[in-house]
């Protein structure tokens, strides 16, 4: 599984000859196959983007226009009024949920990344007894689904009376076995032993070397681990569903889920569910777009098993 040979630290990996050049050499790619290929791409784009487009259009409509105007095009643009109404509802409980999600996912993923990177780096760069056993146990953890842990975690937290607290959702999300796996592969491939040796000769401590030298070389992997852990925590549903009773601790997914179950009793809440759904995916889409250079190269190396 450590078949990564190319140095992943360089994001500009040796690419193939530019597309244009190969296109000229292969005139055999007929206009027909080009057209079919583009048609498939366009149909796929419509499939993937139409629901998001609908959500955006629906969020921008007044309640009256929502059911009476064309669903895929704008009527009176009331997006900002709708956002204001959402933020006003029940003492801004939605903002509170967004803040909770940002805390659980942002801080949680940051700490999870540091912890996983340290462990992966240590397994890659130091020899110690039981190293492979430890790594295999952690690798087994990758295969344990998060939902299988939710119920036993609830039982354990209720033993110490800590359910329905921030910690019940926050602490379990600090563990990322996949992060350890990825940082081990990445550290082995991108942190040369000579650099660690040189830092030792300069008198830097081991831990300091890791934080000042190794983390820089491992940056693409660290961003990838952070992003995927961020998404995993942001999307996590079962754990908060089981752990939390107090609405003010909910992450945004659980909050919107609860609102959605109330639509039949409180029809007005439907508009809030729609606008809330839109607002809850924007941070993730922006994060992915902003950091794409990193996670795309990180993913490339994680996939090469």
């Amino acid at each position: 599984m450590t078949a990564t040979t190319a140095s992943p630290a360089r994001t500009a990996k040796p690419k193939r000859a530019p597309r244009g050049a190969s296109q000229h050499s292969g005139i055999r790619e007929s206009a027909v196959s080009r057209t079919i290929a583009m048609a498939v791409m366009v149909v796929a784009t419509l499939y993937f983007l139409t629901p998001i487009w609908w959500l955006f259009v629906a969020s921008s409509k007044t309640r009256a226009d929502f059911t009476t105007t064309a669903p895929l095009w704008f009527a009176d643009f009331a997006l900002f009024d709708n956002i204001a109404a959402l933020f006003d509802y029940r003492n801004a409980v939605f903002l509170r949920w967004l803040g909770n999600s940002a805390l659980y996912a942002g801080v949680g993923a940051l700490i999870a990344t540091i912890i996983a990177a340290m462990a992966g780096y240590a397994i890659a760069k130091y020899t110690f007894r039981g190293r492979e056993t430890l790594f295999n146990v952690i690798l087994g953890g990758v295969l344990v689904p998060a939902t299988a842990l939710a119920l036993p975690l609830f039982l354990l937290f209720s033993q110490v009376g800590a359910t329905n607290t921030v910690w019940a959702v926050f602490l379990p999300s600090l563990v990322s076995p996949f992060g350890v796996y990825l940082s081990r592969i990445y550290a082995a491939a991108s942190v040369p032993d000579e650099i660690i040796e040189a830092a030792r000769i300069d008198g830097a401590g081991e831990v300091r070397t890791f934080f000042t030298v190794a983390t820089r070389l491992m940056a693409p992997a660290l961003v990838t681990i952070f992003l995927f852990q961020f998404v995993a925590i942001w999307n996590n549903f079962f754990l908060p569903l089981i752990m939390l009773r107090d609405e003010s601790l909910f992450p945004v997914t659980l909050g919107l889920y609860v609102w959605n179950t109330q639509v039949s009793q409180i029809p007005d809440i439907r508009a809030l569910v729609i606008i809330g759904s839109l607002l809850s995916i924007i941070p993730l889409i922006l994060t992915f777009l902003g950091l794409q250079r990193f996670w795309q190269s990180g993913l490339a190396n994680g996939g090469l098993k």
Binding site: T45, I52, N235, L254, L256, L284, F288
Partner: peptide, 12 residues
Amino acid sequence: AFFAPYAVPSVI
């Protein structure tokens, strides 16, 4: 465009 839905939580 194809990757965008991955940024949408399952619940949403």
